[in-house]
Design a protein around this nucleic acid. Structure first.
Length: 325
DNA sequence: GAGCAGGATGACA
DNA sequence: TGTCATCCTGCTC
């Protein structure tokens, strides 16, 4: 994974992330389980945007994929402490001769935590970016229309395996949503209102952070670069299905469990989870009834147009872009 | 049963 | 007019 955008000590405050507990259940699937998505109460009580003290539900995935040496743990972020650390505020570094082993270990752990935090913050930003682009909505919830709000809710439901919560937030604009308190959210959905509130808070925080750190100032990984390239290539809307598929393929970190390259050079890809890809496409196009049968029919329309074809050796759920990226 | 191929039709921008 | 959603039949794996 590449460097996550802006330096934590530069454009955003820096708070510790607590590694709170071991997971008792190994994660399965490409998204996080509902039971893990409730943020800490301290976060929910934050009066202001809490970035980077946000709950990061996919931390395990991140750690396990990017840093296999770190055991399966869950990060529980905490709100900014009044005296949050920065590079400058760290205690003076002792020479090795002066340091006891426990101090060395402590500093190493601290550095490790900071690295992890930086990594996680960057991933959150990237995932919010990705979701924005896939849903075709603004990054800042304040700019959302009622339709955008519904899209985002559907997406959040889908991603975090929430039950249907979008129905109780109908006819609300992003501004309406942002003006609501956590209590308002919980009033609409007793069980998951706080969860939705926390996710909205993450988005608001990401938007605030973007404002402070414009994309050009945020160093991107190679993966991000290619992503940006793709998005720049297709600025117009509506998006075509083949473009959408390419977008998913260009974010293997997020979507490799539902669609992945078999041979990127040849443009051959496999849909690993047909229902999932169809659902994503349906959300993107606001077509709740979308399924793989319809999606695949649309893919087959591309045969005649010379955009997608079946590979020479035809396999189920495997297609090939005629003109690879 | 799931996936695939392709015809037909209609909505929509 | 192009693209896509939808529905359909028939076939293959």
């Amino acid at each position: 994974m590449g460097s996550p955008g802006c330096e934590p000590t530069g454009c955003t405050p820096h708070s510790p992330l607590y590694i709170s507990h071991q997971h008792t259940h190994p994660r399965e699937g490409w998204v996080d389980e509902t039971e893990d998505i409730k943020p800490p109460r301290s976060l929910l009580g934050l009066p202001e945007l809490s970035w980077p003290g946000v709950y990061l539900p996919y931390y395990d995935r991140l750690v396990m994929e990017e840093n296999p040496s770190v055991p399966g743990v869950t990060v529980t972020p905490v709100p900014l402490a009044p005296s949050h650390r920065t590079q400058d505020s760290r205690p003076p570094v002792l020479s090795p001769a002066q340091e006891s082993p426990s101090v060395v270990e402590g500093q190493a752990e601290e550095r490790c935590l900071e690295q992890v935090q930086t990594m996680v913050v960057g991933e959150v930003m990237k995932d919010v970016d990705t979701a924005c682009k896939l849903l075709n909505i603004a990054a800042d919830p304040l700019d959302w229309s009622c339709v955008h709000v519904q899209k985002w809710l559907l997406w959040t439901e889908h991603l975090y395996r929430l039950p249907q919560v979008s129905a109780v937030f109908q006819e609300l604009s992003g501004r309406d949503l942002c003006s609501m308190t956590e209590a308002d959210f919980r009033q609409r959905s007793l069980q998951f209102g706080d969860v939705v509130y926390a996710h909205l808070d993450i988005w608001r925080s990401a938007a605030a952070m973007k404002e402070r750190c414009p994309p050009e100032e945020r160093k991107s990984s190679a993966d991000d670069d290619s992503w940006s390239d793709v998005m720049c290539s297709y600025p117009s809307q509506p998006i075509h299905l083949w473009q959408f598929l390419q977008e998913l393929l260009l974010k293997p970190h997020n979507y490799s469990r539902c669609i992945r390259w078999l041979n990127k050079e040849k443009g051959i890809f496999k849909i690993e989870d047909s229902a999932h890809v169809a659902r994503l496409w349906g959300i993107r196009k606001n077509r709740p009834a979308m399924n793989y049968d319809k999606l695949s029919r649309s893919i087959r329309q591309y045969y005649k147009k010379g955009i997608i074809r079946k590979p020479d050796v035809s396999r189920r759920l495997v297609y090939q872009f005629v003109n690879p990226l």
